[in-house]
Measured scan of single mutants.
Amino acid sequence: VTLFVALYDYEARTEDDLSFHKGEKFQILNSSEGDWWEARSLTTGETGYIPSNYAAPV
Rank of each mutant, 00 (worst) to 15 (best):
G45Q: 08
Y8D: 06
E46A: 13
T14H: 14
S32Q: 11
F20Q: 00
D16P: 03
A56P: 03
Q27D: 07
D35M: 10
P57R: 05
Y8A: 08
A55T: 12
W36H: 07
E33G: 14
P51Y: 07
T43D: 12
D16L: 14
G48P: 00
R40W: 08
Y10A: 01
Y8I: 07
F4A: 10
L7W: 04
I28W: 01
L29A: 05
L29M: 09
D16E: 13
R13C: 13
P51W: 07
R13N: 09
D17V: 14
G48F: 04
P57L: 08
P51R: 06
E33W: 11
P57C: 06
E46H: 12
A6Q: 00
Q27H: 13
F4Y: 15
V5F: 09
V5R: 03
Y54R: 04
L29C: 10
H21R: 14
Y8F: 12
W37Y: 09
D35W: 08
T44D: 03
E15G: 13
T43E: 15
E33M: 14
S41I: 09
K25A: 07
H21D: 06
A39G: 05
H21P: 06
Y10W: 10
F26K: 00
K25Y: 15
H21T: 13
F20W: 01
L7C: 09
T44E: 01
A6D: 00
A56D: 06
A12H: 05
W37I: 08
T47S: 09
F20Y: 00
E24C: 04
G23H: 04
V5N: 02
L29K: 06
L3F: 13
Y8V: 07
W37F: 08
G45S: 05
I50A: 00
S19Q: 04
D35A: 10
I28M: 06
K25L: 15
R40A: 06
H21F: 13
F4G: 04
A12N: 05
F26Y: 01
S52V: 09
P51N: 09
Q27E: 15
L42K: 03
R40K: 14
K25R: 12
E15P: 14
E11D: 10
Y10F: 09
G23L: 02
T44I: 01
R13V: 13
S32N: 11
S32D: 12
P57K: 07
S41W: 02
G48C: 05
T2M: 14
A6W: 01
F20K: 00
K22I: 09
W36E: 04
G34Y: 09
S19T: 10
L29Q: 05
S41D: 04
T43K: 12
D9W: 11
E11W: 09
P57Y: 06
D35L: 11
F20H: 01
T2D: 11
Y8P: 00
A55Y: 04
S32P: 12
N30V: 08
T47G: 04
S31G: 10
E15C: 10
A56L: 08
D17Y: 14
E38P: 05
I28P: 03
G23M: 02
S32H: 11
D9Q: 05
E11F: 09
Y49P: 01
A55R: 01
E46M: 14
F4W: 15
D35P: 10
R13P: 07
A12G: 12
S31R: 13
G45W: 06
L18I: 11
G48W: 03
R13W: 08
D17T: 15
L42I: 10
F20P: 00
T14P: 01
D35Q: 10
D35G: 11
D35E: 12
N53G: 14
G23W: 04
I50C: 02
N30R: 07
D9V: 05
T2L: 13
A56H: 08
W36Y: 12
I28S: 00
H21Y: 11
E24Y: 04
T44R: 03
E11H: 10
S41K: 14
E38C: 15
A56M: 11
S41R: 13
E38N: 06
D35T: 09
A55G: 06
N30T: 08
L3Q: 07
F4Q: 03
G45P: 00
A39V: 15
G34Q: 11
D9K: 04
V58L: 13
G23Y: 05
A39H: 00
E46S: 10
E24I: 04
S31A: 14
V5Q: 06
F26E: 00
G23P: 01
E38T: 11
I28R: 03
E24A: 05
Y54I: 06
L7D: 02
F26W: 02
Y54L: 11
F20G: 09
E15F: 10
T44H: 03
S19P: 05
A56T: 09
K22P: 03
V58E: 09
E46Q: 14
L7A: 03
F4T: 03
P57S: 07
K22A: 12
A39I: 06
F20S: 02
L29I: 12
L7V: 06
D9Y: 04
E46C: 12
Y10G: 00
A56K: 10
